[in-house]
Design a protein around this nucleic acid. Structure first.
Length: 197
DNA sequence: GCCAGGATGTTCT
DNA sequence: GAACATCCTGGCA
């Protein structure tokens, strides 16, 4: 699979692809594109930092980061080289290793096992130690391989709400229409201040 | 069912 | 010191 094109072209081709970590495999049903340095919503917007280093590297690597003090989220780094673009994996369907996934996620409905970016990494057992892994290397602990691509007519797309980027490339979400594992979209709300006594 | 609020730590200002 | 590419629980309908 080719990951070195423009991120908004590469992202929809990831739908239907299969991500495998150990015995658990997930079929991707929802992704979100981040355009890199020019995208105010991207971690790479403020330039190269130790955390975002991987995004500036070659395509096909995993960019894994920790957020909200308890969740891991995972991106696939895309090209072209020199652009820190990446695709956030937002949701998928567990298609193999159900027992292991359920063990990690507890007793939830099958459709909820990997519905959401942090749930997806938890179902797979992915954490920061997987950062920088070459997903296209078959012997890697975390791999991405082509799956059955959904019909193009069943792919839906929408602009991300909450990011005003006048003139900047717009980030997009892509999902498989009607798939029960697609995460429910909630616009980002400003967080209230955490009051301390 | 829906909504409000809290958890929790890394990163950057 | 505040924001953060989130998730879960508990209260109320």
């Amino acid at each position: 699979m080719r990951l070195d094109g423009p991120v908004d072209e590469v992202a929809p081709t990831l739908l239907g692809a299969v991500l495998r970590a150990g015995e658990v495999s997930v079929r991707l049903t929802e992704v979100e594109a981040y355009a890199g340095e020019s995208d105010p919503g991207s971690h790479a917007f403020r330039g190269r930092t130790p955390r975002t280093e991987v995004m500036f590297g070659p395509p096909g690597r995993a960019y894994v980061y920790f957020t909200y003090g308890m969740h891991w989220c995972m991106n696939v780094v895309t090209g072209p080289d020199g652009h820190a673009s990446a695709v956030l994996l937002r949701a998928g369907e567990v298609v193999d290793g159900l027992d292991a996934a359920r063990h990690r996620r507890g007793h939830v409905a099958h459709r909820d096992l990997a519905r959401g970016p942090a749930r997806l990494t938890k179902a797979l057992g992915v954490d920061g130690s997987y950062g920088g892994v070459d997903l296209l290397d078959p012997s890697a602990p975390l791999t991405l391989s082509p799956g059955e691509r959904p019909r193009s007519s069943s792919i839906r797309t929408g602009p991300r709400v909450g990011v005003a980027g006048a003139g900047a490339p717009t980030p997009w979400r892509f999902w498989i229409d009607g798939d029960p594992t697609v995460s429910v979209y909630r616009p980002a709300v400003p967080r209230k201040r955490t009051a301390r006594p």
